[in-house]
Design a protein around this nucleic acid. Structure first.
Ligand SMILES: NC(=O)c1ccc[n+]([C@@H]2O[C@H](COP(=O)([O-])OP(=O)(O)OC[C@H]3O[C@@H](n4cnc5c(N)ncnc54)[C@H](O)[C@@H]3O)[C@@H](O)[C@H]2O)c1
Ligand SMILES: NC(=O)c1ccc[n+]([C@@H]2O[C@H](COP(=O)([O-])OP(=O)(O)OC[C@H]3O[C@@H](n4cnc5c(N)ncnc54)[C@H](O)[C@@H]3O)[C@@H](O)[C@H]2O)c1
Lengths: 226, 226
DNA sequence: TTCGGTTTGTTCTCCCGTTCACAAACTCCT
DNA sequence: AGGAGTTTGTGAACGGGAGAACAAACCGAA
């Protein structure tokens, strides 16, 4: 399921491979640190940061230990320093160009989302197959034909693509993205995407989340009435 | 992290507790089965279904075994029968009323999302704190004041709430939801929510997903240039 | 310098999830 | 009826992650 190997480890690199579960939590820590920093906090303990991030403090410390020893025993972590270290590790110290394909209901919301810019991502293009969409300008970016994909990816060095088309079109869009050189895809369409090794796909599926909630909800109420 | 206990197991119930990882995959199987059914497929093997769902066939079989023995050895699974069994287990054979709070960019997209209805969820109310929103009608449902929450939850027996407000308002909205009787929350705001035991929270965070992709992307390109 | 208090980094153990591998069970053909 | 071929359901091995617990390291006061 995961993309492994292909990255030959050079000896000098600090590439200890960070567990996937830890990688998924680093952005949460990053956000918590940003909040703390904006609140004027200069130093924080693992307990405080863990609380702000909603995790166990032991887990937090273990996660951070994969990056290195950035804390001071008896004191805690320097908020801004740790924040930079995590940002660097994730790779959001500089902006990543992103394209969004499928500018319908969801695509509009994504294009208007300000959280992109503030977290290291820059929407360089909005693409849609429907010619009627091509006159529109969303959040300062104009909607362009889907066929412009290759050129845009090449021009801006885009590595990350977002799919917000109907499910039926998702696989085709993914194929075109991969062919254009995109190697990371965030998929909002309720479809299972098939991509070659070396390409990462993450999916966000609203219906699945709701169904998981429904399952637990059913258990709760079922137990109450039984 | 998880809400445990509180549900006393009565002996007659068929409540073998299904692993959380399996619960998260059942909706994926459900969708794959629906697709197969619509394509006219009457029977399918674990291999076929696993392929359609994008998972390992052994994992699929083990997952399904938690529900019961709904397959036939040497043959496979009856698509419609299995689909019904999974739907029943998840609890989406009847509709769940849902409220959405925060009808901005994202809230509009969610309200317009047709995938709700088709998967067992019905949006019974759209709520927003901004009075200027209250004249609007989105997807046939009119936007109402946030203070109507308690009454709507009571009237419709709402158990599931969706938060699409700015991060700063999310905790307040969650508190009001819980106080109103909602016990499952889907949170789109980038904030860590604190809720009492017995309330389930799931979060969908676009920025985190992108940052995880960026991390792996950085590794890929970094390995190439080194 | 020494000592008490604090907090990190890490080890160890346990649990959950994944995957392999195979016996049991079913169909179909002869 | 019997045997060959197919597919499910599950036992067992394995790997990874979560959490408890503690030694090492640091600060500040005396
Ligand atoms: N709206 C939501 O809140 C929501 C929530 C979860 C998931 N989704 C999923 O996100 C996707 C988009 O949802 P939506 O509500 O925005 O749908 P939509 O129909 O409003 O928008 C889809 C857009 O994709 C474009 N499109 C179609 N085929 C294309 C192609 N081959 N190449 C490029 N563009 C193409 C269409 O022209 C349209 O503008 C769907 O798969 C939906 O299931 C939506
Ligand atoms: N737009 C996106 O694509 C996107 C993607 C990921 C996450 N998010 C997150 O989703 C949330 C909503 O994003 P958005 O772009 O729709 O923002 P938005 O500002 O367009 O909409 C927010 C809405 O919430 C309402 N609101 C504010 N405080 C409220 C309160 N206390 N009670 C009820 N309603 C309240 C506002 O009136 C507004 O209509 C944000 O937290 C954002 O970070 C958005």
């Amino acid at each position: 399921m995961e993309t492994r190997a292909l990255t030959a480890r050079t000896s000098t690199e600090s590439t200890r491979d960070i567990p996937e579960a830890t990688v998924a939590r680093l952005p949460v820590y990053l956000r918590a640190l940003t909040t703390l920093s904006e609140a004027g906090t200069g130093t924080c303990s693992s307990e405080e940061l863990a609380s702000a991030a909603g995790v166990n403090s032991a887990k937090l410390r273990k996660d951070l230990s994969y990056l290195g020893s950035y804390g001071t025993r008896g004191v805690g972590y320097d908020v801004d320093y740790l924040r930079y270290q995590i940002a660097r590790e994730i790779g959001v110290t500089q902006d990543w160009p992103v394209v969004i394909v499928g500018i319908g209901n969801l695509g509009h919301a994504l294009a208007n989302y300000s959280g992109f810019r503030s977290r290291g991502f820059r929407v360089v293009a909005l693409l849609d197959a429907d010619p009627e969409r091509h006159e529109e300008v969303v959040a300062g970016v104009d909607v362009r034909p889907f066929d412009d994909l290759e050129q845009i990816v090449k021009d801006h060095g885009v590595a990350i693509g977002v799919i917000a088309t109907p499910a039926l079109a998702a696989q085709d869009v993914a194929d075109r993205m991969v062919a254009s050189g995109i190697s990371s895809i965030l998929n909002f369409a309720p479809a299972v995407l098939s991509v070659p090794a070396g390409v990462d796909v993450r999916k966000v599926d609203l219906s699945i989340e709701l169904q998981i909630l429904a399952y637990h909800e059913q258990r709760k109420t079922h137990g109450a009435t039984a």
